[in-house]
């Protein structure tokens, strides 16, 4: 029935809790594209994004009666998807024996700086396709999730704050820390070169 598609999210959720068999499906269809975008960017793997999204929708299906109605349904759904992704990322993080974040980023950045200093590298262009996600993998999860929502997906800071259930200032500082950490490993994508007419004693484009 077409009418269900016109109902507001909250009404659909409430009908779902009262036993309506189709209401939740309408809700899913309404939001799945957007939530897929969140999941795929968080997970960077279609299989895992799909799993996370299924987990999330099923848990929303079951937890609908606990929706308090003081936030938007979309925010609530986002929160559930983000949490599902968070759980998977945390497990994924434990798995490989990688060095700690800062060490690894330093290694990446040193390699990059070495290259930038010398002949520019066409060879690295292919491998750098993966760099954005490789670099994101190395960030602390909090920073990564904030950056994924705000920088990758373009959510406003206050929207991200509501989804992540933290203060706006916390989202901002997580983003700022994350960007600073990503700078050395992503700067090469922007083709940075120190201007030749720099008068300062420091020559680098990335003083630290």
């Amino acid at each position: 029935m077409d009418a269900a598609q016109e109902l507001p999210d909250k009404e659909l959720l409430s009908r779902h809790t009262q036993g309506d068999e189709q209401a939740f499906a309408v809700l899913v269809r309404r939001h799945r594209e957007r939530l897929w975008a969140v999941a795929i960017r968080m997970m960077n793997d279609p299989e895992e994004a799909s799993d996370a999204l299924q987990d999330a929708f099923l848990s929303a299906f079951r937890a609908a009666d606990r929706f308090r109605g003081d936030s938007q349904v979309t925010t609530w759904l986002h929160r559930i998807v983000v949490n599902a992704c968070h759980d998977r990322l945390r497990r994924r993080k434990v798995r490989p024996a990688t060095p700690t974040e800062d060490e690894t980023l330093d290694v990446i950045s040193n390699e990059r700086l070495g290259r930038i200093g010398g002949a520019p590298d066409h060879a690295s262009q292919t491998e750098s396709r993966l760099d954005v996600h490789a670099a994101l993998e190395l960030l602390p999860l909090d920073q990564r999730m904030a950056l994924t929502l705000v920088d990758m997906l373009g959510y406003r800071v206050d929207e991200a704050a509501e989804i992540l259930e933290v203060a706006s200032g916390t989202v901002k500082s997580r983003c700022a820390r994350g960007r600073a950490k990503l700078l050395p490993s992503l700067a090469h994508l922007r083709n940075p070169q120190p201007p030749p007419d720099v008068t300062s004693g420091r020559g680098g484009a990335n003083p630290s």
Binding site: E33, R41, S50, A180, L183, A205
Partner: peptide
Amino acid sequence: CVPCAVTLGELNGVTRVLAEVPAPALPQDV
């Protein structure tokens, strides 16, 4: 300080690089 101004610009660049990462649309099978 031009280098620091550049770094500041590059921090915006990080946001831009992140925003430009392509994401596949929801696959029909999913």
